[in-house]
């Protein structure tokens, strides 16, 4: 594994990139592009913001809208359930950030 974790932008219109390695705080190297600051651990397969985004702004990956920012997001920030919401599925906003586990089903 390279010392600097890599991230990949699928489409030129995307404002997020996907981590190709597990990253801890420090920097990530956008494949064929700039270096991004990382302030928190981001795992392989997860997304990093390529620019500052205002709440409500469309989040684009693969060149298509994958949802919108549910609060302001800074460049280099982890983009996931806590700051990105689907334009269709309202349940996903209520899931556990780290495990994705449902919090709205009763077991007792």
């Amino acid at each position: 594994m390279p010392s600097t974790p890599r991230c990949f932008r699928v489409h030129p219109a995307d404002n997020v990139a996907t981590l190709l390695d597990d990253a801890v705080a420090g920097e990530a190297q956008l494949v064929g592009g700039e270096t991004l600051p990382i302030h928190e651990p981001i795992k392989l397969g997860h997304k990093i913001a390529l620019s500052d985004m205002a709440a409500g702004q469309t989040i684009t990956k693969f060149g298509v809208p994958i949802g919108h920012a549910s609060r302001n997001i800074g460049r280099g920030e982890w983009v996931h359930l806590h700051n990105c919401e689907s334009n269709f599925d309202t349940r996903s906003g209520g899931l556990d950030l780290h495990t994705g586990a449902a919090t709205d089903t009763k077991y007792e």
Partner: peptide, 27 residues
Amino acid sequence: CQAVRQYSVSPGNFAGGLTTIEEKSMG
């Protein structure tokens, strides 16, 4: 999906970095 309020995205997908059904869909 709207009628049954079920979208085809699971806890494992979220833990693996997929955030929304739209993102999973494009993949």
